[in-house]
């Protein structure tokens, strides 16, 4: 990244950090926190779609898996958030890699069915495993995070808005930084190579399946982190927070921002995450405007704001 883009990101982050201090009200902070959680999710989904070409229609399930993992560990074993997000990421990541195996074997319509089916099965399983998940009522009383210094002051996040906003902001910066580093590494270059030409990449010694599963796993783990933050913030989770509509929204964010682009994923998520609030006056037309915006975008700039020109259809030729 050039100096200038570094500067722009630095300024953007600094501005974001000062927002709660300049009197942005709690409601707006909550909206922004949600948009930031979308940004984390979009970053993870971007790894899956942008790097392995799997157009995932059930990604919200990993978000849910992360949320329930943290919630269950917290409720049954008393794990605090600061530890609980780690198994949440691991479990969601394992699920991501496990689903990758069947997802990478099918294409087109079948792929849509496999991923969409996975998302719905996860949600319905959650509804029916009431003994563990509380069924449609969900899980209540998940502990909010707290920061405590030994013998010093203690900050309970509670139901305040600003702490979660900062937590989500920090998570976006860290996950975004991680994605940039991965994409620019040896493994990231291999991902780009197999997206350009899978056969040529394989003949250069790149283990195609292994790297694709890795991307799917990391994508799942990132959603798991977002899920743990969400559960810690809400204190209550129910299966309908992780439904198909969310998966589609996330996909729209990634496509809007530009597949494979880290800043695209973040900006796409912030734009679409706050848009519904900006359009609040026209409640019943919100989804309509949203849909129109997507169609116009696909006509004018199908590669997204920051994507390279290849997009969804770019990819591999046969032998």
């Amino acid at each position: 990244m050039s100096r200038r883009t570094n500067l722009i990101w630095g300024l953007g982050a600094a501005l974001a950090f000062t927002l709660p201090l300049v009197g942005v009200n709690a409601y707006h902070l909550d909206v922004l926190t949600t948009a930031l959680l979308y940004a984390i999710l979009a970053l993870g989904l971007n790894l899956i779609v942008g790097l392995t070409g799997v157009l995932h229609l059930g990604y919200a399930a990993f978000f849910g898996i992360g949320a329930y993992t943290y919630a269950l560990l917290n409720l049954h074993a008393g794990w605090p958030f600061w530890l609980g997000w780690i198994p949440a990421a691991l479990v969601a990541g394992l699920c991501g890699a496990a689903l990758g195996l069947p997802a990478l074997r099918v294409r087109g319509d079948y792929l849509a069915i496999v991923t969409l089916g996975f998302g719905e099965i996860a949600r319905i399983a959650c509804l029916n495993l009431a003994r563990w998940t509380g069924g449609p009522n969900g899980l209540l009383g998940i502990a909010h995070p707290a920061l405590a210094w030994p013998g010093g002051p203690r900050l309970d996040f509670g139901v305040a808005s600003a702490p979660y906003y900062y937590l989500a902001l920090l998570a976006v910066l860290m996950v975004g930084g991680l994605c940039v580093r991965l994409i620019r590494s040896r493994v990231g270059r291999a991902w780009a190579a197999l997206r350009d030409d899978e056969l040529a990449a394989a003949c250069a010694g790149i283990p195609v399946l292994q790297l694709k599963l890795l991307a799917q796993g990391i994508g799942g783990a990132i959603a798991g982190i977002a899920g743990a933050i969400f559960a810690a913030k809400q204190g209550t989770i129910t299966p309908d927070s992780f439904d198909f509509i969310l998966s589609v929204m996330l996909l729209a964010m990634v496509v809007l921002g530009g597949l494979g682009s880290v800043r695209g994923a973040i900006i796409g998520a912030l734009a679409l995450g706050t848009l519904p609030e900006l359009l609040r006056g026209m409640e019943q037309y919100r989804m309509l405007v949203f849909g129109l915006a997507m169609i116009v975008m696909m006509r004018l700039r199908p590669e997204g704001f920051f994507g390279k020109a290849r997009g969804l259809t770019g990819g591999s030729r046969g032998p």
Partner: peptide, 18 residues
């Protein structure tokens, strides 16, 4: 069959993967 989205140098760097 080159990696069309990459520069000449990056194409060769991919070749060093092994």
């Amino acid at each position: 069959r080159l990696f069309a989205g990459m520069t000449a140098l990056e194409n060769v760097v991919v070749g060093t993967y092994l």
